[in-house]
Computed example of a mutant assay.
Amino acid sequence: MDIAKIKELAQLLNDAGLSALELKEGDATLRLESAKFTPAQPAPAPVMQAVPAAEPQPAASAPAAPVPDGGVDFNALSEFKSPMVGVFYAAPGPDQAPFVEVGKRVKKGDVLCIIEAMKLMNEITAEQDGEIVDICVSDGDVVEYGQTLFKIF
C-alpha cells in the first residue's frame, strides 16, 4: 500500500467525519482512527496505525495456560467490550467504591460497571467467570460500541 493511497484514505476519514476506517488488502490491514472530538470542536487530524492481520483468538473460557518460565500465557485473556455507546461509570455513585478493581475475581452475572445511554443507567454484567487484569477506560469516559472496557483472565 503506497503512502499516497494512505493520505487519500486519511482525507476521506476526515472529510466524512468518520471515527474509524479499516481497509484490508490481502494479508495487510490498515486501520485509521480519528481522535475523539465533540461537534463543537473541529475534527483533529486522523491517526494512522497499521494493524497486523488478525489471528484466531482462543476460546473465551479457556483456562490460563502456564508458560515454560512459570509465568502466565496472556494470550488467554478475554476482552470485555462495550455493548453500547454511552458514559462509563465504574461505581454506583460518585462517593461509592467501584464495582470491580484490578485483581478482583468476578462471576458470570456480576455487575462490572454502568453505562449511561440516553439518560438511562444500564448495569453491565460479566459474561464469564474470571479475574479483572485491566480496566481500559476511566470513570466518566464516553465509550463506543465494541470498545474494550475490561480484560479478564
Rank of each mutant, 00 (worst) to 15 (best):
E25V: 15
A45S: 08
G140A: 08
K151R: 12
I124M: 12
Q11N: 12
V102N: 04
E55I: 05
N14E: 07
A45E: 14
E79K: 07
L12T: 02
E25K: 13
K24W: 05
V47Y: 01
M121Y: 13
F99W: 15
E25A: 14
Q96S: 11
G17S: 06
V102K: 09
E131D: 06
A40P: 01
E127M: 06
G26S: 04
A64G: 09
D2F: 00
A43F: 00
D69T: 12
L32Y: 02
V87G: 02
A54D: 05
G130W: 01
E25S: 14
E123V: 07
S19D: 15
A28W: 11
K5H: 10
G70C: 11
C113H: 05
V137L: 04
I115M: 13
Q128Y: 05
S61Y: 10
A28Q: 12
E22G: 13
A65Y: 03
V102T: 14
P42Y: 05
K119P: 09
S61R: 11
K104V: 00
Q128A: 12
G140I: 12
E22R: 14
A62H: 04
D27K: 15
V106L: 09
E8D: 11
E33A: 02
V100S: 06
K104S: 03
P44Q: 08
E123P: 03
A45I: 03
D27W: 04
L23C: 14
P92K: 15
I114P: 03
A50P: 05
I124W: 06
Y145N: 12
Q57P: 00
P46D: 01
A40L: 10
A91G: 12
G93V: 07
G26H: 05
K24F: 02
Q96D: 11
V85I: 09
A90G: 10
E79T: 01
F88C: 05
S138E: 08
K7N: 07
D139C: 12
D95W: 10
E123N: 11
V142N: 13
E116H: 04
M118C: 01
Q11Y: 08
G140Y: 09
E25Y: 05
V67M: 11
G140L: 15
M84N: 04
L21I: 01
E8H: 06
E8K: 05
K104Q: 14
C113Q: 06
Q49M: 08
P63N: 02
F88K: 04
D15C: 05
A117V: 02
V100T: 11
G109T: 10
P58I: 01
I114V: 12
Q147N: 15
S19C: 03
D141H: 11
A35R: 09
T125L: 11
D134S: 15
F99M: 13
P63F: 00
A126C: 07
A43G: 04
D27Q: 14
S34V: 11
E144A: 15
Q41R: 13
P56F: 03
